[in-house]
């Protein structure tokens, strides 16, 4: 009897120790990230901050970043919807190869992706596109293309998990009720995927807002031309204007927080059946 009791206590103690260890790790990491952000305050001169926020250069960077990120996120989601659906719902030869290739942009360094795009536009096909369709190298469309290249794989991954979670029975029932395959997808699967679509849109948009490596390699870092917010941080740090760089960092943090809060709100109101 006594043995049983001491055995139980031992179990409870080790359970508590495990819980305490994991929570300590979590708290330490939270302090680490909060500490990094707080360290920015030591470099913050509030007058400089306000003047930076209203400066034409930063207003240009904010506008350019929001517009390009919105366009690239919209394009990425539009391209990812059919691709993610195909990977989620169909079996075809080479599916695992395609799946792996689509994961590559997530793990490859964005600079490498940007460099690959830059090289592509130096090939005959790339040069034809540059001349006949649109100029990408060191131009604003280059920012959109760089962001699109980096975020589309993420959008596919997020949407695939959304489609994986939708019971195929809904589509099957809608087929028997008179919907073609396309109509069933539009009328049933997309409404069921609504939360996942919005969440994927927000996450890919937030990722596009912070994109730097591929953007700077393909579109360059030209002030008031291809100057997105991350590029503005880079340019101001390169010019040793730390206070201005810190002001831009705060803008990026604010945009990211808006995205994350929206995401949390969606995830708490999703369907529960």
């Amino acid at each position: 009897m006594d043995f049983g009791r001491s055995h139980n206590w031992k179990g409870i103690t080790s359970e508590r120790a495990f819980k305490a260890a994991t929570i300590s790790c979590l708290v330490l990491l939270t302090f680490f990230f909060v500490g990094i952000v707080l360290s920015l305050v030591t470099y913050t001169n509030w007058e400089t901050m306000i003047s930076t926020l209203v400066s034409p250069e930063i207003i240009f960077a904010i506008k350019l970043t929001v517009i390009t990120a919105t366009i690239s996120a919209a394009l990425a989601i539009l391209a990812a919807i059919p691709a993610a659906y195909a990977i989620s719902k169909f079996n075809f030869p080479g599916k695992s190869v395609v799946d792996t290739i689509l994961d590559l942009p997530i793990v490859i360094s964005p600079i490498a992706l940007g460099a690959a795009l830059l090289v592509f536009f130096n090939t005959p096909l790339g040069m034809i596109i540059e001349v006949k369709i649109a100029r990408f190298v060191f131009e604003v469309p280059g920012i959109i293309l760089a962001q699109f290249t980096v975020i589309t794989a993420l959008a596919i991954r997020l949407l695939k998990s959304t489609f994986d979670g939708i019971d195929p029975r809904y589509e099957q029932v809608s087929r028997t009720l008179g919907c073609s395959k396309l109509k069933a997808f539009m009328k049933v699967t997309l409404p069921l995927a609504k939360d996942g679509l919005i969440a994927s849109g927000i996450l890919t948009w937030a990722r596009a807002i912070g994109e730097f490596g591929a953007t700077v390699t393909l579109a360059g870092a030209t002030k008031m031309k291809t100057e997105t917010l991350p590029v503005a941080i880079y340019l101001n740090l390169a010019a040793a204007d730390v206070e201005k760089a810190v002001a831009v960092i705060f803008i990026l943090i604010a945009l990211s927080l808006v995205a994350l809060i929206s995401l949390r709100k969606i995830s708490t109101t999703r369907y529960h059946l």
Binding site: D167, R169, Q172, V173, T176, V188, P191, L192, Y271, L273
Partner: peptide, 14 residues
Amino acid sequence: QIGYVPQDYALFPF
């Protein structure tokens, strides 16, 4: 021209 009621009914939740 069939009517189908699956086991879990699959009513559209939206």
